[in-house]
Design a protein around this nucleic acid. Structure first.
Lengths: 205, 205
DNA sequence: ATACGATACGGAAGGAGGCTCCGGTTCGTG
DNA sequence: CACGAACCGGAGCCTCCTTCCGTATCGTAT
């Protein structure tokens, strides 16, 4: 539901404008982050602002449309990873994907996070899906004893979102992308001796 | 330099207005976060916007003035903690203070973080001080072998800022304030067996 | 082919904020 | 008390958001 071909077919001009708007919105968000000028988007699409607002009543609605596919893919990935031999690796892998997704547009992390607590937002549905996916993978890793059991799903998401946000801020700085996530999983403290449970990052000499 | 009594004394009316502006700005930021309306601030202070902008050319300048004291206190705290018996505890303690400070106004974490890479900002000086303080405490903890040695100061700050930001977002949610920081230090993964190095949070059964 | 709803369009308009600029006012000192 | 320096106020211009409605366009029933 809410698909691109629902609701008794759109009028041809409407569909054309809608597509143009989405295309322009995408590049605008890419260039200027999630608070790019919507008037600009409309102008570039060769359309009046009214048309934009009719198709997408809110900025979130526009975002939601652009993210639907990515989010669906993420949810599918979670289902698949549920069968991964290592629950810990599964969780980490999915989390890295999640962060990559919420980082495509500058400011997206904030939008997604804010939405988690606001059922009215157009993005809320997708975010809920993400929340459930994360919860499932986290719980499994915890039951397997590979992730500390006293971490609540919301806490986990908060930390991940925080790291994701931090990554956005440090854009261009000398922080290798996934580094923050790995530190998050392993912790800042020094483990008793040497390495703990094997992780990709410490297989080399 | 840049103090409140420098530059050959201010004219009486100027000083009065300046003080009123700061007072109103403080409550405005408290109520509406760091992007409160500056026109509003001016109005409440019984002053024209022009006056506000003359005293504080940018929003950051206003913020910087409000935060100077707190930041100075934080820097002093860092110097004091440099002598703390446990370098790890020292780092943690300071970090908690830091987060509390960058959380007084909603949105402040973002402002402070953005400023780290922008020497032009009025907040930059204070942020640099913080960076140095954090670096010193971190380095000491690392040399004592209490914090993993491969964490760069900027990475550390990024993670802390991220957790701080996350805490802001989850405002009102069921996340106990300092929880995220503690998780950050201890990591999400399960240590090999039971507890690692003793931390406040695991002294009880 | 035509005509007639239903749909969709465009942009004017009104609102909120940010920031600048300069004629006018006030201070405080000689 | 008088005069220049310092300071003030807010009109004005800008950008962006969002709503609203007269007008244009589409698709179909005739």
């Amino acid at each position: 539901m809410g698909d691109t071909t629902t609701r008794r077919a759109m009028r041809a001009d409407a569909r054309r404008n809608r597509d143009r708007l989405l295309a322009e919105a995408r590049t605008a968000f890419l260039d200027h982050g999630t608070d790019a000028s919507l008037e600009d988007v409309a102008a570039r699409a060769g359309v009046g602002v009214g048309t934009l607002y009719r198709h997408f009543p809110t900025r979130e609605a526009l975002l939601a449309e652009l993210l639907r596919e990515r989010f669906d893919a993420l949810a599918a990935g979670a289902r698949q990873l549920a069968a991964h031999p290592s629950p810990r690796e599964a969780l980490i892998t999915w989390t890295l994907d999640f962060v990559r997704t919420t980082t495509v547009y500058r400011g997206l992390t904030a939008a997604v996070t804010a939405t988690l607590h606001d059922p009215a937002s157009a993005l809320h549905a997708s975010c809920e899906t993400m929340r459930r996916a994360a919860t499932a993978l986290l719980t499994r890793a915890q039951e397997a004893g590979e992730v500390r059991a006293d971490v609540a799903p919301l806490e986990f998401l908060a930390l991940v979102a925080g790291a994701s946000w931090a990554r956005e801020q440090m854009a261009g700085a000398e922080v290798p992308g996934d580094r923050l996530l790995l530190l998050l999983f392993e912790g800042l403290g020094v483990p008793d001796f040497g390495r703990r449970s094997p992780t990709r990052s410490d297989r080399s000499p």
